[in-house]
């Protein structure tokens, strides 16, 4: 066999074997990876909507999904809004839990972020940031308190503290929540967040 045909044969064989092998690995792991993702979302929904044990997708578009959180009896306990926006470095993905009439924000969690470790990444930390996002008024836009208020109690129902040294990341979360609030309200008023035919339990 000439050298060039040998090169072609060897490269083709190596490529085919590797491709076949990877295809089987892909098939074997595909379901599990999809399941992991689904479970991560499900866990997030249950944790931001108190009393919910299961969920249902009510509205879906690119990077904006509204889930309905249900209790054991299947009644709607609130909505979980999956949304995202640009942070200091990259996309920040949030899951926001609100009640069934969109008047209170239960809590929110950060599903994904690539903010600066030690500074902006504090947005994932409960004591330094997420605690300000617990049990808030969801009927009006949120505002950042700058400089941060010393005590949790001195913040109004629609105010949240800024992380010192990470204003941009704090603002990014604020803007994502405010945008999601507007969008969810519009959908709600159009009646597009219907759940099993009814708005709420």
């Amino acid at each position: 066999m000439s050298l060039s045909s040998r090169m072609v044969v060897v490269l083709t064989a190596v490529g085919l074997l590797s491709g076949g092998f990877l295809a089987s690995v892909g098939i074997l792991t595909k379901d599990r990876i999809a399941l992991n993702r689904k479970m991560e979302i499900e866990r997030a929904i249950v944790s931001v909507v108190p009393g919910s044990v299961a969920s249902e997708t009510l509205y879906e578009e690119k990077d904006f999904i509204v889930y309905g959180g249900k209790n054991e009896a299947g009644a709607l306990k609130g909505f979980a809004i999956y949304t995202s926006g640009i942070g200091f470095q990259d996309k920040i993905i949030l899951m926001i839990g609100v009640d069934a009439s969109l008047s209170r924000l239960f809590s929110l969690i950060v599903l994904d972020q690539k903010e600066t470790p030690g500074l902006g990444a504090k947005i994932t930390d409960r004591t330094s940031f997420l605690v300000y996002w617990e049990d808030k008024d969801f009927t009006q836009s949120f505002r950042l308190r700058k400089p941060p208020a010393p005590a949790l109690e001195s913040l109004s129902a629609s105010e949240v503290n800024t992380i010192t040294g990470a204003t941009i990341s704090s603002e990014a979360v604020l803007n994502i929540v405010n945008a999601a609030q507007e969008k969810a309200r519009a959908l709600y008023e159009e009646g597009r967040l219907s759940f099993g035919g009814a708005h709420a339990e």
Partner: peptide, 21 residues
Amino acid sequence: ACYIVVIATFVTIADRFLAAF
């Protein structure tokens, strides 16, 4: 070229494995 294909195959396996488990 052959080495890179072999290496890339194992890397992809490791990547999928980590993502799955």
